[in-house]
Simulated assay, not measured.
Amino acid sequence: MNNKGFLVISLDFELLWGVFDKVDHKDKKLYFENTRKVIPKILNLFSEYNIHCTWATVGMSFNRNFEEWEANKPTTLPEYINSSLSAYQYGDLLKTELSDLSCFAKDLISQIKNTPNQEIGTHTYSHYYCLEDGQTLASFKADLEKSISVARAMDIELKSLVFPRNQFNESYLKVCYELGIENVRSNPTDWYWKDTQSTSLKNKLFRTGDAYFGSNNKSYKIKELNKIDGKPLSQKASRLLRPYSTNFFLNSLKLKRITSEMTYAAKNGEIYHLWWHPHNFGNNPNENLSDLRKLLEHYKKCGIKYGFGSLTMSELNSFV
């Protein structure tokens, strides 16, 4: 058993499907143009620093355009009580207005697939909300089956899943496993991550503040991961990499928090699981890429000094 630590990175690759219920798409054209441009640059950085990464990709983005999107609708659709959460309703209403470039990314998925050490996972097909009123096991299963189908059409086998909005649903793990999903990302154990649907000011303040202040480390031992028959391996997230802040002091604190936690994981042979959304780099892309390079440079130093390595979610599974 390797007693050296590992950096695990998972990215929630969504484009507009991840935020359509929260933003006005008309204001986000440049944002997603930047996102598309920044993804190849992230891949170049990962190649430069030999970073292994899992890209949890919304299945709808595997389509080429809205015509293909229409043809690929599952037979069973989610029936959320809050219908505005449905990507299907959203697409039907706005597909004449929406840019294909904000929604579809077959070209970028191919580039990720062809980059060494990158795993393509799933973020469900429709950015499915697993804890919202009206969701059902049947519609979730149909959604996941469609993700698997469109991925296989590109010769991609999905082994890892990240629940959208971190709505981790324990009761859905069995069907994930039955459909070939071997790994899922779970949430940090801090109390303010327990209820991911909470919009309370208290939760928001603690989640935000934790990115900059505090002394508790977020890494963990591989032995803390337990394989359970009939379920995917639950891999706990450590830290969300928040976007670049124009407040120099806060941005420096954020980077210092991550690098100190990474050092602790490297010294103690632990897992440090960092995650973010590629579209988080849509504003201030150059500054975000610069921050990422600083973090990867620190990772490199940890590798030289402590033997710190890099794994995808599927690769971590093989160590458990």
Score class of each variant (00 low, 15 high):
Arg36Phe: 11
Lys28Ala: 00
Tyr49Val: 06
Thr57Tyr: 09
His25Ile: 00
Cys53Asp: 03
Asp92Tyr: 07
Leu98Ile: 11
Glu70Leu: 11
Leu98Phe: 03
Trp17Asn: 02
Ala56Asp: 13
Ile42Trp: 14
Lys95Asn: 14
Val19Ala: 08
Leu94Ile: 03
Asn34Tyr: 14
Leu16Phe: 05
Thr76Asp: 06
Ser47Gly: 12
Arg36His: 14
Leu94Trp: 08
Phe32Val: 03
Ser99Pro: 05
Glu97Ser: 11
Met60Arg: 05
Leu16Pro: 01
Leu77Ile: 03
Thr96Cys: 11
Thr54Ile: 05
Leu77Asn: 02
Lys26Ile: 02
Leu30Asp: 13
Glu97Thr: 06
Asp24Glu: 04
Tyr80Ser: 08
Phe6Glu: 05
Asn50Phe: 10
Lys28Arg: 06
Leu77Trp: 01
Cys53Ala: 15
Asp92Ser: 09
Glu14Met: 10
Tyr88Gly: 03
Leu93Trp: 00
Ser84Asp: 09
Thr75Cys: 05
Thr75Ser: 14
Ser86Trp: 07
Lys22Gln: 11
Glu68Gln: 15
Ser99Trp: 10
Glu70Gly: 04
Gln89Asn: 09
Glu48Phe: 09
Val8Ile: 15
Ser47Pro: 07
Lys28Gln: 03
Thr57Leu: 13
Val58Met: 00
Gln89Gly: 12
Cys53Ser: 08
Trp69Ser: 06
Val19Gly: 08
Ile51Phe: 08
Trp55Arg: 03
Phe66Tyr: 10
Val38Pro: 07
Thr35Met: 10
Lys29Met: 05
Thr54Leu: 06
Asn63Gly: 00
Leu43Cys: 12
Ser47Cys: 09
Glu14Tyr: 06
Phe62Tyr: 14
Cys53Pro: 04
Glu48Ile: 10
Lys22Trp: 06
Ile39Asn: 09
Ile51Thr: 06
Lys26Ser: 01
Phe13Trp: 05
Thr96Asp: 15
Phe66Asp: 12
Gly91Trp: 08
Thr54Val: 04
Asp12Lys: 06
Gly91Ala: 15
Gly18Pro: 09
Pro74Trp: 00
Phe13Ala: 01
Ser10Gly: 04
Glu68Lys: 11
Phe66Ile: 09
Lys29Thr: 07
Lys29Gln: 13
Leu94His: 15
Leu11Asn: 03
Pro40Glu: 10
Tyr31Cys: 08
